[in-house]
């Protein structure tokens, strides 16, 4: 199985007035061709920074890529010039942003926003680009696309704007689509529509998708692989089945227990993860989850565990899996 994207040992920092924020601290993961990979984690865990690094959308300064490489089809994106990146953005890698209310240009017609990418990357006339835009709007399920193409974003509802965003990101048939919380701002019935649409489009075009989310339900329903991030690090990866059925890291286990299931017994209190994530301005040397972990040991305080193979497709970084550790459960 070949990978369309490989992120290797990525370290990204932001230089701020208050000091250096180590937002991403050694992230490793890969995206197999034609698959959907979820990046899950709480706010501030570095999932959006990782995504924007792939697109090279972080302003430098304050951002700085300190280490690592991002291989897209074997080429290191971090070594590319801005000119080369412009050829890749929107063309080979597409992106869907979280908030459809703010990520569309309010003063430009939706059609023009879709054709912008097509005209830039492909050798087509304006007329052809327009008919492609209408076709795309039709593809993402917007009724009356001939009329809608000449409307402004404010004339669209939230769900329709997100559909328009998807149309823009798909305009040049990218090999990789990065969706940064594409449904967080939407209602559940609209969310179901959008997720179904993304799945259908993937079946049609074979695009690989990176889906960034904090909703475990969305992950379980739409993704093949999961990358769990915490405090700027990847703490567990694996297929959806592995990570949901046999989570190996205490943080992943905690996440699974803290969401109520529909079959949850109401007499049982939820099991929250105590405390809150560490400050990335001054992260500890040891395991980032140490302060909140119920299984924390002496070694966790000062030494960060390495990322170990757990069998199948699963990897996790936790000292509990060290041969010298006592069995956890």
């Amino acid at each position: 199985m070949s990978n369309i994207l490989e992120v290797k040992d990525l370290v990204v920092s932001f230089h701020t007035f208050g000091g250096e924020v180590q937002a991403v601290r050694g992230v490793n993961f890969s995206v197999p061709k034609g698959k959907t990979v979820a990046i899950v984690g709480e706010s501030g865990c570095g999932k959006s920074v990782t995504a924007k690094s792939i697109m090279q959308l972080l302003p430098k300064p304050p951002a700085e890529y300190k280490q690592g490489e991002i291989l897209f089809n074997g080429d290191n994106i971090l070594a590319k010039s801005e000119r080369d990146m412009q050829r890749i953005r929107g063309n080979e890698i597409g992106m869907i942003f979280q908030d459809p209310m703010t990520s569309l240009n309010p003063t430009t017609k939706v059609g023009a926003q879709i054709t912008e990418g097509i005209l830039k990357h492909k050798d087509v006339s304006r007329k052809e680009a327009r008919s492609q835009a209408i076709e795309l709007l039709n593809l993402v399920g917007i009724p009356q696309p001939e009329k809608r193409v000449d409307q402004y974003p404010h004339e669209f509802s939230g769900g329709m704007r997100q559909r328009a965003m998807i149309a823009i990101s798909l305009a040049c048939e990218p090999d990789l689509l990065i969706a940064d919380e594409p449904t967080t701002a939407l209602d559940v019935t609209i969310q179901a529509q959008i997720l179904k649409l993304m799945k259908d489009l993937q079946n049609k075009t074979g695009t690989s998708i990176i889906l960034i989310t904090h909703d475990l339900g969305v992950v379980a329903e739409t993704c093949d692989h999961v990358v769990v991030m915490y405090a700027g690090q990847v703490i567990e990866t694996g297929t959806v089945e592995e990570v949901f059925e046999t989570p190996q890291h205490p943080y992943t286990k905690g996440l699974m227990k803290s969401v109520p299931r529909l079959d949850q017994d109401k007499k049982q209190p939820l099991i929250p993860i105590i405390g809150s994530p560490p400050d990335l301005m001054d992260p500890t040397e040891g395991c980032p989850f140490f302060a909140r972990c119920e299984y924390a040991m002496e070694v966790c305080r000062d030494h960060n565990p390495s990322f170990e193979y757990m069998g199948g497709n699963q990897h996790a970084s936790c000292w509990l899996h060290h041969p010298l550790a006592k069995a956890s459960e």
Partner: peptide, 13 residues
């Protein structure tokens, strides 16, 4: 509404 809620269980995908 109930059917649209994503369930955190890949077996019910």
């Amino acid at each position: 509404l109930l059917s649209a809620v994503p369930v955190p269980d890949p077996k019910l995908k």
